[in-house]
């Protein structure tokens, strides 16, 4: 393990030899213990000065890559202007985990697919070409949207669903320079390369996540699961709306727990724009959002659950 002091050192260390960055360790260390992740080297980036949360030019907010989930969720501006993000983060994991987990680490959280996490099982994501036992096995918790014949693993994050609805952008650095990746270009569908999860290139380091200004918007996160706390979503909805009286002037919808990636629902948004807020309109949008869903043997219920979740989230945010 290498410990680095600043971004340049981190990039150099990564250039020198293949390695994985580690910050809070709440995903990577877990998976190393399970023998699922086997990095030859890890570069600890905890000391990098990327922990602050600052106002962005133009009114948004910049979350340092190392700002912890707790720090983000409890930040006054996040609580007031980006409520969906605060609610999403606080609905996940536990206080202890949120105190360690970081913004960028959460962006790269790995799936909870049981077969991915069992090194003795086949898994196209872990060992490309080995097969997907989840499709023919136990798949209750897995995805119904964005799946392929090679992988149906769910993106487990709550934060990333909220960031998707907020149209966040991801700031990365590499030896070649800086670039900004819109979140809807960040996650890759599994297709026939489920081992590739993001558009992050080797050697790139996430340094910040930028939230655009959201004045005039209300937002909300609703998460459904078996028990009341400490469980990944079976279905969740991150919604943001701009209301003009009772007319929906603007709307953004992302779904969690049902997609192989945090799932933006543009067709449902288009169907709602200009409509009057009502349960019927919301249910219709939910039908549209899930119309391409593909159930597996154990998870068909998620389609109806996600529809109810989205309908209720829209009702609550417009109430």
């Amino acid at each position: 393990m290498t410990r680095v002091a600043d971004v340049d050192e981190a990039l150099h260390a990564r250039q020198a030899a293949p390695a994985q960055y580690v910050a809070g360790g709440t995903t990577l260390i877990d998976l190393m213990r399970q023998d699922v992740e086997r990095p030859e080297r890890v570069i600890a980036i905890n000391r990098l000065a990327l922990r602050t949360i600052d106002a962005a030019a133009g009114g948004g907010l910049v979350l340092g890559a190392l700002a912890t989930n707790s720090e983000v969720a409890h930040h006054p501006r996040v609580r007031s202007e980006y409520r969906v993000l605060s609610e999403a983060i606080l609905s996940g994991a536990t206080t202890q985990i949120r105190n360690m987990a970081t913004t960028a680490g959460n962006l790269l959280q790995r799936t909870r697919c049981i077969y991915f996490r069992d090194p003795h099982a086949a898994c196209n994501k872990r060992e490309p070409g080995s097969g997907c036992p989840a499709i023919t096995g136990f798949n209750r918790n897995l995805a119904v949207l964005g799946t392929s014949d090679h992988c149906i693993a769910t993106n487990p994050s709550d934060q990333n669903v909220a960031l998707t609805a907020l149209e966040a952008t991801i700031e990365v650095r590499s030896a070649a320079g800086s670039r900004t990746i819109p979140i809807d270009k960040f996650y890759l569908l599994p297709a026939d390369t489920p081992q590739r999860e993001t558009s992050l290139q080797p050697g790139e380091l996430i340094v910040a996540v930028t939230l655009p200004p959201m004045s005039g918007w209300r937002s909300h996160y609703l998460k459904l699961r078996d028990r009341q706390s400490y469980e990944f979503a079976l279905a969740s909805a991150a919604v943001a709306v701009q209301l003009d009286g009772s007319t929906i002037a603007g709307v953004r919808i992302a779904l969690g727990g049902v997609g192989t990636i945090p799932w933006r629902a543009p067709a449902a948004e288009a169907a709602l724009r200009g409509k009057t807020a009502s349960r019927d309109a919301f249910r219709e949008a939910a039908e549209i959002a899930l119309r391409d869903a593909r159930p597996q043997s154990d998870n068909g219920f998620k389609i109806e659950l996600a529809k109810r979740c989205l309908t209720q989230a829209l009702l609550e945010v417009t109430a």
Partner: peptide
């Protein structure tokens, strides 16, 4: 399959 505390769901305090 669900041989851990994330996937084997027991009642939480909540």
């Amino acid at each position: 399959l669900n041989r851990n505390f994330a996937d084997y769901v027991v009642a939480s305090n909540a």
